[in-house]
């Protein structure tokens, strides 16, 4: 493009259209907080379906595991959480779970996408070891893009290095 054409057309100053992205994808990270309406009938006791729902609600409350800086191994203190999810998923082969991998803000965004995927895969491999099938498990890495705490300090960073199990 010649310079004259550039200024004549005003292309550099052109008001470009704003696209608003598809809004069908809700943020599902906080799914645990949205499933609390389990009201047991007073006389008959909970039905099987209600018990199932209660169990899933419990799992959703404890659905985050944390990682050390630059590390992707499952920590011993998080194994109990993953065993509970693994037992449930192994039993209910029709239930699927999405595992999100996240990082703190240190390191480049692209490297953190790779690191976050490794963290999510650590959870996948742990669950597969408990008899969960591949078909039940999917993974997304958000890298450093979706911090729980956007502050820049050790406390925030340790909360942000995580994998989240989303049903």
């Amino acid at each position: 493009m010649s310079l004259n054409a550039l200024f004549k057309a005003g292309l550099l100053a052109l008001g470009m259209m704003t696209l608003v992205a598809c809004e069908s994808t809700e943020n599902v990270t906080d799914a645990g907080a949205t499933t609390t309406e389990t009201v047991a009938p007073a006389e008959t006791g909970p039905t099987a379906a209600e018990l199932e729902e209660q169990r899933l609600a419990e799992l959703r409350k404890n659905h985050v595991v944390y990682f050390e800086f630059d590390k992707t191994d499952i920590l011993p203190q998080d194994e109990e959480i993953l065993r509970a999810h693994g037992a449930y998923l192994a039993e209910k082969s029709n239930v699927k779970v999405l595992i999100e991998g996240h990082c703190d803000e240190r390191g480049t965004p692209e490297y953190n996408i790779a690191l976050g995927e490794r963290r999510a895969n650590s959870v996948v491999n742990y669950l597969k070891g408990l008899g969960v099938s591949d078909a039940q498990l999917s993974v997304v890495s958000y890298g450093e893009e979706k911090p729980v705490d956007p502050s820049s300090n050790e406390a925030a960073w340790s909360k942000n290095r995580r994998a989240v199990l989303v049903y």
Binding site: L12, L14, A21, E26, N27, Y142, E145
Partner: peptide, 13 residues
């Protein structure tokens, strides 16, 4: 002369 191109609920990288 900032021009927005895309707004989203989810990350853009």
């Amino acid at each position: 002369n900032e021009t927005p191109l895309l707004r989203s609920k989810e990350p853009i990288m």
